[in-house]
C-alpha cells in the first residue's frame, strides 16, 4: 500500500478516479502475499502489483469495470479444472482479490 501512495496522490490531484485491487487470499503458491495492492486509474494506468505480472492485465479490466459500475467486487484468478477462470498464475496457485473504487 505504501508504495502506491505517491502515484495515487498524483492521480487524485489530477482529478482522476482510482480503483484499488488488493490480494485478500492466496491458495497454494502465489507470488504476492495478502495485502499486496495495485491501483488503476480511469485511464487504465497502473501502480503496484498483485502477482508477478501474470494477472495484472485482467485486473485492469476488472478495475475499469468497477470504476464504471461504482460497485466493489471479489474476483479470483487461478488454474482450475472447470475452466472457471480465464487468466491464471503460471505457478499454479489461485489469488483472490477485492477490487473497489477509491471512494472511502
Amino acid at each position: 500500500m505504501r508504495e502506491i501512495l505517491s502515484t495515487v496522490d498524483t492521480w487524485l490531484a489530477e482529478g482522476k478516479r482510482v480503483a484499488i485491487a488488493r490480494v485478500i487470499g492466496v491458495e497454494q503458491s502465489g507470488p504476492r502475499d495478502p495485502g499486496a495492492t495495485m491501483a488503476v486509474n480511469e485511464d487504465g494506468e497502473v501502480a503496484g502489483s498483485v502477482s508477478g505480472g501474470c494477472v495484472e492485465g485482467a485486473v485492469v479490466i476488472e478495475a475499469l469495470d468497477v470504476l464504471a459500475t461504482g460497485v466493489a467486487r471479489r474476483c479470483s484468478f487461478g488454474y482450475s479444472d472447470d475452466q472457471a477462470f480465464a487468466v491464471g498464475l503460471t505457478c499454479g496457485g489461485t489469488v483472490h482479490l477485492l477490487v473497489e473504487p477509491l471512494d472511502w
Binding site: 500500500m1 505504501r2 487524485l12 485478500i24 477485492l98 471512494d103 472511502w104
Partner: peptide, 27 residues
C-alpha cells in the same frame, strides 16, 4: 473522491504509525 478513511490510512502509512485496515471481503 477519496474520503476520511483513506486520508487517515495514508497519513499513518507515511508517518510510520501503526494502523489496521479491516475490509469485508465476503458477505
Amino acid at each position: 473522491m477519496s474520503g476520511e478513511i483513506f486520508q487517515e490510512l495514508r497519513r499513518c502509512l507515511l508517518s510510520g504509525e501503526p494502523v489496521g485496515l479491516v475490509l469485508v471481503t465476503r458477505v
